[in-house]
Amino acid sequence: MKRRTMSLLLNSGLFLIGLTTLAPVLWMLSASFMPSGEAGTFPPPLFPSAPTLEHYAALTERLSMMRYFLNSFIIAGSVTVVSTLLNSMAGFAFAKYQFAGRDRLFGALLSGMVVPAQVTMLPLFLMMKEMGFVNTYVGAVIPGMASIFGIFLIRQFVSAIPDSLIEAARIDGGSEFRIYRTVILPLCKPILLTLALFTFMGTWNDFMWPLIIMTDQSNYTLQVGLANLMGEHVLDLELMMAGSVVTIIPVLALFLVFQKHYVRGIMVGGVKE
């Protein structure tokens, strides 16, 4: 009997927390289909009286949301491809080579993780300005091309790969780069997927750096474009919800499909968002 009461309490608690977690997201989805003005009435309606796609149409036709979407996709995609490559090479080197100062260098890198990114942004902006990269994709991508966390993640994984596999490839006469490409990379597939997911989703959701570096509206990412839209269309509640849906859905879909791989990244160790 006591066990049944406990179970009832626990499961209703979980249900309530689940509802609280989902409610804002579901409301966003529902409100994005409401006719203009409906979500701002009292009492707030939970479902659209006459579902409409007009706000999605307005976003793509009038408000260059597709442009923001494309910008976000190009930036997050480039950062993901480049940083996964650079981090995997560096992580491999830290895990499988002996060289003078290796551990001290790795330790120094790790201690760099306590520096908040905001500290770098002022000089980084000035550097980008001097190099002519303000308001360009290159400027948005450059600081993300390698990451300490990514190197750490790969190093942890590659350390567990037996040295004998590498030795065998060496005896077969493979060059060091060939070993990286044909032995290490294939074995690293799961962790590369994890790292790529983290990088893509992190870059997609990043706000402050694109806000600083992109000065022209046509170069805004979705996050910056959405925040900007908020300034102009704050009373257009349904439109803002449609914009939020467009911004959230891609990463949410990625997460739901690759959940297992994403969660592994958290388990491997300290993730700095």
Partner: peptide, 21 residues
């Protein structure tokens, strides 16, 4: 999975939703 959804959601979008809530 449900409890994790807000974590991967865009902070900007989430802040906008909550502003209306």
């Amino acid at each position: 999975t449900v409890f994790f959804l807000p974590v991967v959601s865009s902070l900007i979008a989430v802040a906008i939703i909550w502003r209306y809530l």
